[in-house]
Structure formats: C-alpha cells, structure tokens
Design a protein around this nucleic acid. Structure first.
Lengths: 158, 158
DNA sequence: ACTGAATAACAATTCAAA
DNA sequence: TTTGAATTGTTATTCAGT
C-alpha cells in the first residue's frame, strides 16, 4: 500500500529522467533506490501506470509514461483535483541536456512559467513559455531528480 | 517494396479502425485482406511503423499507431503540410547542441511549431515559437541527420 | 491486497534462403 | 531487401502464500 505507492512514484521518477529499455533494466534502477521486487510485480506496476514500450530508433526501445501523466493509484482517480492542480494545467515533463520541456494544456504555459520564475529556484536559471510549452534552463550540476523535487511546490501533481 | 508498402498501409488502416490486442489477432485480420505473412514479419512491420501496445482497460491491450502515421481522411485541417511546400514558410534550420533553430517567413513560426508538436516525434521533445523562429529541443542520442529526416514529413522542402 | 516463483503468452531476433 | 521457421528474449498471468 504505502510501500507500493512510493515504488510507483520511484518508477515515474526514473522513467521521467532516464531512458529505460526493458523491465530488467528498470528493475536494476529500482534496486539502486532500495526497492526489492521481481519482474512479475514490476510488470503489474507498469500495467497500472499504463506505461508503454516505444521504439526510439530501430532496435532501441524506451518505456514511456502516458502523456497526461494522470498517475497515482486507482483510488486517487476518483478524487477531485485540488484547485492548484487544476490551475496549473500540467501535462508532462521531459528532459534533454540542461533543458526541461513542460507541456501544459493550451494557454497555461505563461502562467506556469510566471509562477516558476517567481520561486527563484537556484536550480532553474530561467524559463521561457509559449502557449502550451514551458522550457526551463537547468543550472549546472543540478540533477533532473532535483528539478522535479523543487518543482513539486509549484506543480504538486508532477 | 510494392507488396510490403501496401501491407503496411493495410496495417495502418486496420489499426486505425479497429481494436487489435495482439499480433496474432492482427495477423488474422490481414489474412482476411489476403495478406499472407508470419508473426516474424508482422513484428518487423509494427516496429517499422513504431506501433505501441497500450493498456486500454486493465487486462485489455490495444496496438496504436503514433500520431503522425495515423490514417487521415483528406481534411486539410489536421493534415501535415505535405501538399503545398510553400505553405509552411520554412527558410532555414541551424543546430547548436541539443537545440535546432528554424527560421520561417514572418508569422509562420507558430503554425509550423504546432504541426511539429502534433507529430509527437520522440526525437523532438519540445518546441517553442516566436513570430519567425521555432526552437526545437532535440532528444539525447539523436543525431541532426535524424532530426532532418523526421522533419521531412512536416517540412518537405527542408 | 500484494507479492514471488513458475509458467504461459507473446514479441523480437537470428539464421538461412530467395 | 524481404521473408518464414525456429529460436531466443521479454512480458503477462497463474497460482499459492502472506
């Protein structure tokens, strides 16, 4: 229950920040974080998170979270969103190099970027927003996990 | 080849119009259309089309095409700008690190970015547009050649 | 409800051939 | 380059136990 949810969060974190190409590989990453489980359980977790195995380049696979990262366990699906969750329009976040790309619902990007800017996170040296996309320039020596962690205060549903 | 391409088209049509939950099931549908092939070949076809196996409801799977290879009727709205090469306003593309910068004619950038976004290329994790400039954030481990190749479906005159 | 061990089911790849 | 047969590899499920 409690353990399982933190494990699902760990899976989401790992899949959001690195390229994973098999359940075996993900199992190893989870082991590094102290999660002990078998492939059977992981398969069920991925099923619950509706993770899909995509083809990146021929012969190379990547496990990806669904784009509207409506995660959490089944019980939270029926729980109404808080105003803050509802308000930020967050859909997904991806990383490449020192840049994070946040997708939002249409027209939400500007407001979200404004809020992130206002936080003056030292880990995020700047943002730029379109209509449904926010780009974050990440400070050097800052990990993606850290970025996700600090963003949680602005985007609780990240 | 000719046969193979029509088979790929048949696959795209089937996946666009019905729920398929396994390769074997798809094999049967293809047989109805007169295509004789084995699971090995089908697996390769699906790989080429970058089809993903998604979870619809718990325990129920569905093979889905990526957005940019879905079957579309000739409504010009959602269709990429493949017909009129002039329509996209493309002028030039340059690269630096994991960023590509596309210059367009004035006011064309937003529409072009929109179309690129809609394709959901895994190689391009995000775009942001000004008036005559589109910036693309390129996924890690993706070459510039690959970026140019995938953009060709949106910008034939690239 | 959650899990691991074993297994079944399924999909990807190898190999040989055309 | 494309393919099928066989094989391997990977993931989903069953079953039993907690």
């Amino acid at each position: 229950m409690k353990i399982k949810n933190s494990r699902l969060d760990a899976i989401r974190l790992i899949l959001s920040t690195q390229d994973i190409s098999s359940q075996e590989e993900l199992l190893n990453e989870l082991a590094k974080e102290g999660f002990k489980l078998t492939q059977a359980t992981l398969s069920r977790d991925l099923h619950q998170l509706r993770v899909v195995k995509t083809v990146r380049t021929p012969g190379q696979y990547k496990y990806e979270l669904p784009r509207n990262s409506q995660y959490r366990t089944n019980d939270s699906e029926s729980r109404p969103l808080t105003t803050q969750q509802e308000a930020n329009g967050f859909l997904s976040i991806k990383f490449s190099g020192n840049i994070a790309v946040i997708r939002t619902k249409p027209s939400y990007a500007g407001t979200l970027a404004y809020h992130i800017d206002n936080c003056d996170f030292p880990e995020i040296i700047g943002t730029i927003a379109g209509d449904d996309t926010v780009m974050l320039i990440i400070a050097e020596d800052t990990t993606r996990g850290t970025v996700l962690r600090v963003l949680r205060s602005v985007i609780p549903n990240i």
